[in-house]
């Protein structure tokens, strides 16, 4: 047993190091003043964390907070709406038989294969046509319909909701809407939390869509906002220390979200383990 465990453990530890190394660099680099950033040893802490934070929050009258609120709105609102749509669509595809069901499902599978990056440009042109470019909706709407989440919701509801339970509900006279709300949704919660987290992280990290859609810097999410500080034009120095500190601060809500949602993840994993 011990000998077998050694190899996977080593691989996992290496993987964890590989993932955590850049993050730890961000943590260390965020403490350095601009003078220390490129002149001190890579992993020695600097003395400028608080001045960096103060500078970041003072940058353009605190526009960083506005970007943070925007990002929370895009990621939180987008993920919530996306989860609801995916739940309803996945449940319907799993539990109802209707003409075209397989066709719709196959199109969705195809949709998974199309990277969102490819769609950003056509979406921008379409949104421009209907006058929605450069609005909050232009970033929210395209991220609500997410084929992979629907696929997950379908697979999950197929496995987690017994047909007999729905039948019993129908015999008792429950409407389909009531079945979805009171029977299906509660049983799907662990799966939905997974979908919510997936979507939240995806939207939080999304750069290209908001970059293309938005012109008004008051509507930027953090990714695009920080980028404007990096690409400050050839003749302007990049604000490296502010960007690194901004990246670090932007990680905090994500970490908080994962810590609070952790127990749902566990439920999800164990429920999968028990099922046969």
């Amino acid at each position: 047993m011990k000998r077998i465990g050694l190899v996977p453990t080593t691989i996992l530890v290496l993987g964890a190091l590989y993932c955590l190394f850049p993050v730890s660099w961000v943590v260390v680099a965020a403490t350095k003043t601009p003078g220390e950033l490129f002149s001190t040893a890579t992993f020695s802490f600097g003395s400028g964390l608080f001045s960096n934070l103060a500078d970041l929050f003072a940058y353009r009258d605190g526009v960083f907070w506005l970007w943070m609120v925007n990002t929370l709105l895009y990621a939180g609102g987008g993920a919530l709406l996306s989860t609801l749509v995916s739940a309803a669509a996945g449940f319907a595809l799993a539990k109802y038989r209707f003409p075209g069901r397989n066709a719709i499902f196959n199109v969705l599978i195809g949709g998974i294969l199309v990277p969102g990056v490819v769609l950003a440009m056509p979406q921008y042109l379409l949104f421009s046509k209907i006058g929605l470019a450069d609005t909050y909706w232009s970033v929210l709407l395209p991220q609500i319909l997410h084929p992979y989440s629907i696929y997950l919701a379908r697979v999950y509801s197929q496995a987690a909701i017994p047909d007999s339970l729905l039948e019993a509900g129908r015999l008792d006279g429950a409407s389909e809407w009531l079945l979805l709300r009171r029977v299906a949704l509660p049983m799907m919660v662990p799966g939905l939390v997974t979908i919510f987290l997936f979507q939240f992280v995806a939207i939080w990290n999304n750069f290209l869509l908001p970059f293309i859609m938005l012109g008004d810097d008051g509507k930027f999410p953090l990714t695009v906002g920080l980028y404007t500080m990096l690409a400050a034009g050839a003749n302007q120095p990049s604000l490296y220390n502010l960007i690194i500190t901004g990246t670090l601060v932007a990680l905090v809500p994500l970490i908080a979200l994962f810590l609070t949602m952790q127990r749902y993840w566990r439920t999800d994993l164990s429920s999968g383990a028990v099922k046969s």
Binding site: Y124, F211, I212, G215, Y227, T228, A231
Partner: peptide, 19 residues
């Protein structure tokens, strides 16, 4: 409206103009 500078800004403006 503060944008990313240089080539990105040019590409973005051209796209917006076309749209």
């Amino acid at each position: 409206s503060k944008q990313a500078g240089g080539d990105d800004a040019a590409a973005k403006f051209l796209t917006a103009a076309k749209a």
